[in-house]
């Protein structure tokens, strides 16, 4: 495991903890998108490009937009 993998995993854990602890929901969604993008990079490093493409399109793209649409109809604070 190289330093690059270690940094990615560290960033992943930090993002997951931050998304859980943030009060503002929009900030949490943005952090969740960063989490998904890191996860996509990690899938690619684990020699699974198929899952990486799905994760990048689904996790970082469509899920973020659907959560934004849901937040705009409800409150934006926890």
């Amino acid at each position: 495991m190289s330093v690059f993998h270690f940094l990615l995993l560290l960033f992943l854990v930090v993002c997951a903890l931050a998304a859980g602890r943030t009060r503002g929901l929009i900030s949490a969604v943005i952090i969740f998108a960063a989490y998904s993008l890191t996860m996509a990079l990690l899938w690619q490093q684990l020699h699974s490009p198929d899952v990486a493409i799905t994760e990048a399109a689904m996790g970082a793209g469509v899920t973020t937009l659907l959560l934004f649409a849901a937040i705009s109809r409800t409150g934006r604070m926890e």
Binding site: P49, D50, A52, I53, T54, A57, M58, G61, V62, L65
Partner: peptide, 21 residues
């Protein structure tokens, strides 16, 4: 090559979501 129906369909849908926005 990597990809498939689900991933490609999501990418195509994201283009129309960009159009809506």
């Amino acid at each position: 090559s990597p990809g498939g129906g689900f991933a490609g369909g999501t990418v195509m849908a994201s283009s129309l979501i960009l159009y809506v926005m």
